[in-house]
Nucleic acid binder design. Structure first.
Lengths: 323, 323
DNA sequence: TATATTTAGGTACCTAGTTACGTAAACAGG
DNA sequence: CCTGTTTACGTAACTAGGTACCTAAATATA
């Protein structure tokens, strides 16, 4: 089978195949023991036989299915006369499900089958060098600690990090500056008049007024931008603004690199404090600002409608966040 | 989760849950890499990107799916313009499927993603005491050697074997003798007149003519029977006939115990050869007779219509099959 | 060479799960 | 106490696979 060459890349496919196989095997084992139980009923049956009566959603949580799935299974088992249900007298929404007399009878008769299956599996595990059962439990535990997408992203970051550079703005990047900002603005909000002015004329609105723009390059393409705008008549020296990272490279730490670089730039310019405005729907951005050392403040009114949170950073070189 | 108390009994459920989780994770990884590939397309895509063009059924075999599944996946990928198909000029039935230009392009761009996923998985495996990937491969290999139902049956056999006894027939078992034989006869054939006579009157047709019947008891219930009928004007001394085992206890070695006991009985009676008639559709029975030492012969005509195979066993005490 | 069998692969429908959504009961806040 | 929100859970529709069955082409056989 060519697919096997894919190795762990095909882990999902392999697991699916194996679980299907085991379901078939389970069906034939039930048949051999004359147990009138479908494999898909087993989780519900098992939980009910050990723990009496419970509502559908609790059952669903206890077996790790969605509640409609349990609802369907219960309906099928009702037809097979294995369970009975009645509504909870204390809570009319609840449908309490429990084993019927026939179900209890089956739960007693099935113990021999459990014993044999358990023994067969345990002796199978004993004959292997790598214990699947323990491996599965451990693997699920590891995924709980950090999900697979997170782990993969971490690998990508490590691999691609050297290909990311942060450089000062030159007019060549004007269209990128606009593109990378209008992308997120128009996704979550609507472009305001001031946006168009600043993004169309960064030189006159930012650079010429003593501000700075940094551009992040990935494989020599501009994928992130960030501006430092001097503030007048404010307790803060500069505003960190117009930060945007292309969606396809998010998660690679480009925002962090831009932020760190712009803070260094501010320090080099002698700034003692930075200010920024954002919106709480931009959760990853807020998290980044916090990680960069910004703290929430209550400042004055903003020229942008979308602003609903203001943050500030005091630049004392000794307590800068670690790289 | 209460279901976790079931331990390995819930192996199937656990595998299903994990494979569903990985499929979701895969989808989000594809999204992060802007790869326009559904997780379910991966097996087909992977095989095609490595091995050019191939017909649908070959693809199905290479990824371990049914051909309708591949047919559907190919249709979806066709809409996404990832594959192209054309019928084989040498064989009009075949639908040759290969990657399109866009598909080939994707197969080049996806290699970074493969690298990261592979690295993430391998480093995850390295951090565990029990390697899931190796465990899965080994587990599947073990199941190929002997299926789970077979292993469970073996456990059941070992557990229940002490509860099986073979005893000589007494008239109390007349109805069991009839029930256990008519069960298999009417399942595969139809009851003939001679069947009714022998099964209704075993004393006069078998015992009184010098024959013998043995009964297998399981938990004190009659679950198997077997008769030894003296043959006249034949080169064989006795016929082994009317062997029947209740379907719910098949696989526990009851047929073997009955067969061994009846052979011992024949030896004790001084027989030097046994004969039997059967039908090749009764595969487990034929296999049992062979295991007991019977060999196929070409004898004369049979009184039973259902007979299409005849077997014989020469009883030389020295070369009896081992217990 | 005609006919029977096998093979490739499409369509229809089944299965075991899901998400989305609606309704009614319970609960919480003014 | 009323009203808005949450919760329980049923129904509907979707998804990713499967089996059953059909047709047409290729192959084997009489």
């Amino acid at each position: 089978m060519i697919l096997d060459e894919a190795g762990p890349l095909a882990l999902g496919s392999r697991l699916r195949r194996l679980s299907e196989r085991l379901t078939e095997d389970a069906a034939s084992i039930y048949k051999a023991y004359q147990t009138e139980l479908k494999p898909k009923w087993f989780p519900v049956f098992y939980v009910l036989s050990g723990h009496g009566t419970m509502p559908v959603t609790t059952l669903a949580a206890e077996i790790g299915h969605s509640h409609p799935s349990v609802s369907k299974i219960v309906r099928e088992m009702l037809v097979a006369d294995l369970v009975k249900q009645h509504s909870d007298p204390h809570d009319g929404r609840r449908n309490l499900v429990g084993l019927s007399a026939k179900g209890i009878d089956l739960s007693l008769k099935i113990s021999d089958q459990y014993t044999d299956v358990q023994e067969a599996l345990l002796s199978l595990f004993d004959q292997t060098r790598h214990n699947v059962w323990k491996a599965l439990i451990e693997f699920e535990y590891m995924l709980e600690q950090q999900s697979l997408p997170e782990r993969v992203l971490a690998c990508r970051k490590r691999r691609e990090s050297p290909q990311v550079r942060v450089i000062p703005y030159i007019p060549e990047y004007r269209s990128d500056f606009k593109r990378l900002n209008s992308q997120w603005i128009s996704t979550y909000f609507i472009m305001e008049a001031l946006d168009h002015q600043v993004l169309d004329h960064p030189e006159s609105y930012i650079i010429d007024r003593g501000g700075h723009i940094l551009v992040a390059l990935y494989k020599e393409q501009a994928v992130g931008v960030c501006a430092l705008i001097p503030l007048e008549s404010s307790e803060y020296d500069f505003e960190l603004a117009k930060m945007g990272v292309a969606p396809e490279v998010r998660g690679l730490g480009i925002g962090w690199k831009l932020g760190r670089a712009i803070i260094e730039k501010a320090k080099a310019l002698g700034a003692r404090s930075l200010y920024l405005e954002s919106n709480t729907v931009l959760e990853p951005a807020i998290a980044l600002y916090r990680k960069l050392g910004f703290k929430k403040i209550n400042g004055g009114p903003s020229p942008y409608k979308r602003s609903n949170i203001q943050m500030a950073l005091t630049l004392v070189s000794s307590d800068a966040p670690p790289e």
